[in-house]
């Protein structure tokens, strides 16, 4: 159990790491260029891994609906957007606001699809996130 906890934690850290690296590339090129390289290099790694341990056309691929193929298009904008924002807001606030956007839209989707879950907890969560986003506007002076 301790191992999977660590792995899940590391997976989160890798998200931040990749955003930081892409942000650095965007500083020298552009947000879209950094998104291109992020996807191309990631593709290279995944192709290599698939050659060793996977299949390039698994069963069921042909049956998948169209929107199962479209995630990568949103991914391009997602990485480019992250590279753009991280320069302006720093890694921590970028991370927080991206997660906020994800959760708020996720709850909207849950409501539309009627996903089961605790209503009051969900409502409290949305309220806290909105408050956090509202507070982020202030920036505030550095205290040390």
């Amino acid at each position: 159990m301790a191992t999977v906890v660590l792995l899940a934690f590391v997976a989160g850290m890798l998200v931040t790491l990749s955003r930081q690296i892409n942000g650095r590339l965007a500083a020298a090129t552009s947000a879209l260029t950094s998104s291109f390289w992020n996807h191309a290099v990631g593709l290279g790694v995944l192709v290599a891994y698939t050659l060793v341990a996977g299949r390039f056309w698994p069963e069921g691929a042909a049956a998948a609906p169209w929107y199962a193929w479209a995630g990568g298009i949103a991914g391009v904008v997602f990485v480019a957007g992250g590279s753009w924002v991280i320069h302006r807001l720093g890694a921590a606030l970028t991370s927080g606001l991206l997660v906020a956007g994800q959760m708020l839209s996720g709850v909207m989707m849950d409501l539309i699809r009627g996903t089961e879950g605790s209503g009051p907890m969900r409502f409290a969560g949305v309220a806290l996130i909105l408050l956090g986003v509202w507070m982020s506007r202030r920036g505030g002076s550095r205290r040390e």
Binding site: A100, G101, G106, V133
Partner: peptide
């Protein structure tokens, strides 16, 4: 802030897809 929120919102579609 709006750009960050909108970018994060894309993740919901990406995860779904």
């Amino acid at each position: 802030i709006c750009a960050a929120l909108a970018t994060g919102g894309l993740l919901t579609f990406m995860l779904f897809s």
